[in-house]
């Protein structure tokens, strides 16, 4: 039997909003450590990896590791039926062909129960090497979302270049060009407003803004976003997920292959 209860059900709603437009179908790998998902988009240009730790749930039981293959847009539609303050419980028998979702309203007066069919997905896994990155930038996630949205008006690709204490996003297209320059902040008064850059060597790389704007749908999950870049390896965009009492619940990590000169 697999059963996972999350009092802060809104986290699960936001995770599905953050991945459903990028990946149609994916499998949740559930083990005693927690729930994880890894899937590429259909073009194999980007990949999303989600991790939710077992001890981040309010109740977590996983007798045997199970793989729950699902259509994510269906799951997202069901999760839209849950209120933002609802407790969400996922339940699946070990050899079942469906998963049950239970939504309990805060005042315990209302309980909803939905069943979603499971799918047999022969998902291919990618081995992602743990490489040290030349550049890591931590910045406010809403700033990253706005920059990607603004620059997509100008062109379909952004060139990210990093110096010691600043990061530059540049785009150009038929109507013209645009650049956004962010300087590293000193000790910002609010940590979530800070921009911090650690650079081993300068980089300059280009990426398709279409995918970055998909990634930015994870913005509601985390006040900060972390960008990791190295020459000629995919970009990593990571949103760490903490719950209300600030403990680490997991992360959403996106990988994006670069665009290179012909």
């Amino acid at each position: 039997m697999f059963e996972a209860k999350l009092i802060q059900g809104a986290i699960l709603k936001k995770i599905l909003d953050a991945i459903k437009d990028l990946v149609n179908e994916a499998s949740w790998d559930c083990s005693s450590q927690g729930m994880s998902l890894q899937a590429m988009d259909t073009s194999h240009v980007s990949l999303v990896a989600v991790q939710m730790k077992a001890d981040g749930f309010d109740k977590y039981r996983c007798d045997r590791s199970v793989t729950l293959g699902m259509n994510l847009s269906s799951l997202s539609k069901i999760l839209k039926c849950a209120g933002n303050d609802d407790t969400i419980t996922l339940k699946a028998p070990d050899d079942g062909d469906k998963i049950t979702l239970v939504f309990e309203a805060k005042n315990e007066s209302e309980t909803s129960e939905y069943e979603v069919k499971l799918m047999n997905l022969d998902s291919e896994y990618l081995g992602i090497p743990d490489t040290p990155y030349s550049v890591n930038v931590k910045m406010p996630s809403h700033k990253f979302q706005r920059i990607c949205r603004d620059l997509q008006q100008i062109g379909d690709a952004v060139t990210i270049s990093c110096a010691k204490d600043s990061i530059r996003f540049a785009a150009k297209g038929d109507l013209g060009s645009g650049t956004v320059n962010l300087c590293q902040t000193a000790s910002a008064d609010k940590p979530e407003d800070s921009v911090s850059i650690s650079m081993q060597e300068p980089i300059i790389q280009s990426f398709a803004l279409k995918y970055l704007n998909h990634f930015a749908k994870a913005t509601p999950l985390s006040p900060q976003v972390s960008l990791s870049l190295s020459p000629d390896v995919p970009l990593v965009v990571e949103y760490s997920i903490t719950d209300d009492d600030g403990s680490d619940f997991g992360y959403i990590r996106y990988y994006l292959a670069p665009k290179i000169d012909e």
Binding site: S43, Y125, L126, G127, P234, Y255, A257, K259, I260, E262
Partner: peptide
């Protein structure tokens, strides 16, 4: 013009 690379060129597919 820039060519879009694929993840399979960087990560090993199992």
């Amino acid at each position: 013009l820039k060519k879009q690379k694929l993840l399979n060129e960087y990560f090993h597919v199992f």
